[in-house]
Amino acid sequence: MGSIWEIDFYSRPILDANQKKVWEVLVCESPGDISTQPDSLFRYAQYCSSTQVNSGWLRTALQEAIDKAGEAPIKIRFFRRQMSNMITKACQDVGIPAQPSRRILVLNQWLKQRMEEVYPQEEGYQGGTNPSVRLESPLPQRLPDALEGKQWAFVSLQAADFAEMPEWEIGFGEAFPLELADLSPETRIPGVLIFSPRALPIAGWMSGLELAFLKFDTKQQGRLVLETGATESWILANIKNPQILAEAEGFEKAKQNANGVHFIGVQSDPQTESFAGFWLLQEINIA
Rank of each mutant, 00 (worst) to 15 (best):
S3D: 10
F9V: 09
P13Q: 02
I14Y: 03
I14T: 06
L15Q: 09
D16T: 10
E24R: 11
C28S: 09
P31V: 02
S35D: 14
Q46D: 15
Y47M: 04
C48V: 15
T51P: 00
Q52I: 00
T60A: 06
L62Q: 05
Q63P: 01
A65M: 07
A69M: 10
A69P: 03
I74D: 06
F78L: 05
M83C: 12
K89F: 02
C91F: 06
Q92I: 05
Q92R: 05
D93I: 09
D93P: 10
L105F: 09
K112M: 08
R114Q: 08
Q121F: 00
Y125F: 15
S132A: 12
S132Q: 12
D145R: 02
Q151V: 07
Q151T: 15
A153R: 11
A160P: 03
E167S: 09
F172N: 03
L178H: 08
S184G: 07
S184D: 15
S184C: 02
P185L: 07
E186M: 08
I189M: 10
G191I: 02
I194V: 15
S196I: 03
R198D: 15
A203E: 01
G208S: 11
F216I: 01
E227R: 13
T228S: 14
E232W: 05
W234Q: 01
N238Q: 13
K240P: 01
I244T: 14
A246R: 15
E247M: 12
A248N: 07
Q256I: 13
N257L: 14
N259I: 01
H262F: 09
F278N: 12
W279F: 10
L280R: 02
Q282T: 06
Q282P: 05
E283I: 02
I284N: 11
